[in-house]
Design a protein around this nucleic acid. Structure first.
Length: 712
DNA sequence: AGCACGCCGACT
DNA sequence: GTCGGCGTGCTC
């Protein structure tokens, strides 16, 4: 049942009914009716008179055993009650009943007195097969009124029709590509792994443009041929229409899409057709991991290093790791694909847990971008500006050649901080411990953590001085302003989550870039996600130092991935591409590795660091986040947890300290970090700690984040 | 999680 | 003298 209870509840099974493990049922719970899943647990001893009968057994295939095991695993691993993980699977109320039949018609052989050309066309089609009235009208090229009239004349019989499949089945051999020898060899190896029909994790490691997608599409084709279902996980899938069209070009049909932008009704239909095995391929965001595939044969995690795979709400999980877990329970292959694999995956491959497949050569004739650092100490921008002379010169030349430049800055808004020049007043968020960011186009100050915003004031609220607010540091909007001043003729576009209003609009802008209708692109993280821009030959990184400092051990990794992805955008079409990194620390190992094009140097450096600190994946981490509207209560309970935590070999607790975002949405947050050796059972340790600690006072919440991404 | 029950402050 | 705030506890 969907409760935060550790054990399942028992119910009476009415006479002449049957259920099995995985059956989906409706049961009474207190005063309401809820959806539950039948498990194979040993029932608890409960007085028979307390047992209430199952209300209804849904007319729906039972959840596959593999999914049942996966639900339990996720629950145990993330310390979430099983019922709440199950709820995630069943959040599709209408899908539990079969899809409604459509009203169809079929010709009953009778003839008409009066024939017209339109009627003849309809009848010619209606002679064979079953139709919906509107479908028949459309196919015959007549208006629905023709069909309606014929219906009235009684030449059709009504017949219930199964609803049409949501997607046409992809064809494995629709349009296979030509492979280079290296690619062909890897395709063969993958097929061999797939044919061995056991759980295995493959790390497909290849630089941008090396043809990773084409290669794993062959794995998809191979499983399609065997009638198995395939799940492809993508980060930010709502934005990646490019992926969908590539899939369509290869397989002659689209995959089913699963992400937050899909309507509830559509989600229900997809869910139902997935459990019925009528949908073969799903391309989805991390939540697609919980779909009830009846015959799953392969999971692909594209851009496996991407941080959007980490869910940090409701319950915390990393979709890449859970994909591997589901693959293991389903006994199938999992392919992780990336140009810049995560440190975790690199280490797993080194230690033999994953099998690494390397695609070295760039597809086509284009070379890697030629990357140089711009030392901002030697060639600084004009005062108050952010574009250095070398970067401006490179942009000029690129434009002269009719090609595109991309400026990358991982900061939304106009300026990261706004303050009063007279009294030094800083605008901070009333709900969070962060600064308000000026968004000049929208005329507001915005909090990037909770969404709080207010109009940009003309007068300083602290000292009353008029028009003395100054923006500090660059945001994409400010860069856009500077670019427009420097290149008044250039057509430019800014890609940032808050400037681009809708998914639809973003797709249009991406298309404009692809068609060359734009000279200069200015963007945040968004541009680093899998878009392919054929005219792009210059990438300027405004602040390559962002993320190098600040003590977050993952910062360097993120910077490296981001820089590789962004510079990898350029030069995929036979043209030499250039990357310019504006930096104040040209000697930093990450910058050096970028310039040298030396991924290996970067990974060696980072992996050694992790190993020395016993940080993941060489050690284990979990965070306990205690939050409350009252700061003192949150802090007190965090201390209590520390105090009652048992001693254990190889595990120790750090903190409590204020959480990285110490005050969000009116809640104060304190964090304890639990650090364990690689083989330690950190989940059990947390369970022991939680049960040893007195229950928190009301209003205090404890969230558990296994494998936290920020281990500051 | 979601709901009922229950105990204390502002209205007809 | 009642409505409704949310704090506490239970659901097979």
């Amino acid at each position: 049942v969907p409760l935060p209870e550790p054990r399942p509840f028992s119910y009476a099974l009415p006479k002449d009914t049957q259920v099995k493990t995985g059956s989906i049922v409706q049961v009474p719970l207190g005063s309401r009716q809820v959806v539950g899943i039948v498990t194979d647990d040993e029932p608890e001893k409960i007085a028979p008179q307390r047992l209430r009968p199952i209300t209804r057994i849904f007319d729906c295939p039972a959840l596959p055993q593999e999914l049942m095991r996966f639900i339990r695993f996720v629950a145990d691993y993330t310390l979430t009650p099983t019922g709440l993980v199950a709820r995630q699977v069943l959040r599709v109320p209408a899908a539990l009943d079969p899809e409604e039949m459509l009203e169809g018609i079929v010709w009953n052989g009778r003839h008409l007195n009066k024939m017209t050309p339109a009627r003849a066309r309809v009848l010619a089609l209606a002679r064979d097969g079953q139709w919906t009235p509107s479908g028949l009208a459309a196919a015959a090229g007549v208006s629905t009124s023709v069909v309606t009239t014929l219906q009235k004349q009684g030449i059709f019989d009504a017949i219930p029709l199964p609803p049409p499949a949501l997607v046409t089945p992809p064809e494995p051999n629709f349009s296979p590509p030509q492979f280079t020898p290296v690619q062909a060899r890897i395709v063969d190896e993958i097929k061999k792994e797939l044919d061995s029909r056991h759980f295995t994790t493959l790390l497909l490691d290849g630089i941008t443009g090396s043809g990773k997608t084409e290669v794993y599409f062959e794995a998809v084709a191979h499983m399609l041929e065997q009638g198995r279902q395939i799940l492809i996980l993508l980060p930010e899938i709502a934005l990646t229409q490019q992926f969908i069209s590539r899939f369509h070009a290869r397989f002659g049909a689209k995959p089913a899409e699963w992400h937050s932008d899909i309507s509830p009704r559509q989600r229900e239909r997809i869910w139902r057709q997935v459990i019925e095995g009528r949908i073969q391929v799903v391309a989805g965001a991390r939540s697609a991991l919980f779909l009830p595939f009846s015959n799953l044969g392969l999971i692909v995690v594209d851009e496996e290093h991407d941080s959007s795979y980490k869910q940090e709400e409701k319950f915390f999980y990393h979709a890449r790791d859970m994909a591997v877990a589901r693959g293991s329970r389903a006994n199938i292959a999992v392919i992780l694909s990336s140009a810049t694999p995560s440190i975790e995956s690199q280490v797993n491959a080194r230690q033999g847990r994953y099998r690494r497949l390397v695609l070295k050569n760039r597809f086509g004739s284009a070379g890697l971008p030629y990357i140089t650092a711009v030392d901002m100490r030697k060639t600084p921008p004009e005062p108050g500006k952010f574009l250095s002379p070398p970067l401006i010169k490179a942009m000029e030349e690129t434009r002269k050649n009719g090609q595109q430049s991309l400026l990358f800055l991982n900061r939304r808004g106009f300026a990261p901080l706004t303050l009063c020049r007279v009294c030094g007043h800083r605008f901070s968020c009333p709900n969070c411990s962060s600064w308000l960011i000026e968004h000049r186009f929208r005329g507001i100050l915005l909090c990037h953590h909770c969404g709080y915003h207010k109009p940009t004031p003309e007068v300083c609220p602290a000292c009353g001085t008029l028009d003395h607010l100054v923006p500090c540091g660059p945001g994409v909007e400010r860069i856009a302003e500077e670019v427009q001043e420097t290149f008044p003729q250039a057509r430019l576009v800014v890609l940032s989550t808050d400037l681009v209003g809708s998914v639809k609009q973003l797709r249009l802008e991406l298309e404009a870039i692809t068609n060359g209708a734009v000279d200069i692109i200015i963007g945040t993280q968004l541009v680093a996600k899998g878009h392919h821009f054929p005219h792009l030959t210059l990438v300027g990184v405004i602040d390559a130092d962002l993320g190098l400092t600040g003590g977050d051990p993952r910062a360097a990794e993120r910077s490296f991935q981001l820089l590789s992805q962004v510079t990898g955008r350029a030069g995929r079409e036979d043209k030499q591409a250039f990357g310019l990194l504006q930096t104040y620390q040209a000697e930093h190992p990450v910058i050096q590795a970028m310039i040298a094009g030396d991924r290996q140097a970067f990974y060696v450096h980072e992996i050694a660091l992790r190993q020395r600190e016993q940080m993941p994946p060489f050690g284990r981490l979990a965070a306990l986040i205690v939050s409350s509207e009252k700061r003192a209560q949150a802090e007190h309970h965090a201390r209590l947890l520390r105090q009652f935590a048992p001693k254990a070999q190889g595990i120790n607790i750090l903190g409590p300290a204020e959480a990285p975002l110490a005050f969000i949405r009116n809640h104060y947050r304190f964090r304890l970090l639990v650090h364990g050796q690689r083989n330690s059972d950190i989940q059990n340790y947390l369970r022991a700690t939680l049960s040893a600690t007195p229950a928190p006072t009301s209003g205090v919440k404890i969230a558990i984040d296994i494998d936290p991404q920020s281990f500051l």
